[in-house]
Nucleic acid binder design. Sequence first.
DNA 1: CCGGTTAGTTCGCGTTACGAATCAAAGTAG
DNA 2: CTACTTTGATTCGTAACGCGAACTAACCGG
Lengths: 147, 147
Amino acid sequence: MAAEREDLIDALAQVAFVTTGVLSAAASDRDLSLTQARAIGILRDRGLRMSELAQVLGLEKSTLSGLVVRAEKRGLLQRVPDDGDRRAALVTIAPAGARLAQEVRADLEQALAPLIGGLEEGERLQLQALLERMIEHAGTRPETRSS
Amino acid sequence: MAAEREDLIDALAQVAFVTTGVLSAAASDRDLSLTQARAIGILRDRGLRMSELAQVLGLEKSTLSGLVVRAEKRGLLQRVPDDGDRRAALVTIAPAGARLAQEVRADLEQALAPLIGGLEEGERLQLQALLERMIEHAGTRPETRSS
DNA sequence: CCGGTTAGTTCGCGTTACGAATCAAAGTAG
DNA sequence: CTACTTTGATTCGTAACGCGAACTAACCGG
């Protein structure tokens, strides 16, 4: 039964690589790095502070600075000063960024279609439910990083 | 029903990021890049030619060269000449690399434990089966990259 | 042999990411 | 009100990653 768990890990890893690979390709078609694509995807809904976004992405603040500067130069993101704390900057998505995010998302969906297309409607829902349960439990862990 | 599919995509992406994030952390604890970790994971079983490994990883041959050189310097991989074709080099895992792969894998398993631990035994098998079906259909697609 | 193809390597370049140092704004005594 | 510390973010130097173009070596068909 330990072997079973190992196989699950393998399957998870493989699917993860395929998914990120596809996303990375869709992103780079639009001159976005995988991380930039992630960032605009995350900011689709809400704005975040630099430090918050860095944590979500698992990056150092210094790394994020550069990333946001580049994205801002391209008009994909924008930094607005957080009123109430003049040190903090709120990163929000700009119209062009939202558009790009939409496109990348569409490409991702299309590229993954053959994978999930092989599943029945009910199986898709099952899969989604299982994945969402996993994500829930992921929140339990405080840190993804160790160093 | 389009919304359902979108949610599945979201769930897939999130799980993919968590998984690669965890793996990346486990790898970097041992001074391995995510790609290096992938490489030694792939070579766990079988040896591959440079070009084959490059394709599996979705990398350019030139990129792989550097990666293998660095890994070889650390005694993780080794290149043996392919007899029958003196141009080709077979990349195989070295003892130290196999040990590291084992460790990384153990860490990955441990880090993912809370996620899959929330599932019943039967659900785990279900999930694994669904993921494996997806991977099968992934093989149908000829190329993961576009440019 | 000789052109064409295939396997790998080398080189130069830009991007990504990290960590240490720095700076400004907040918070916290005393 | 003036220090001292903490927090949010940027800058700078450095290393690794990845690409594409150019190159070498070996195979392959005539």
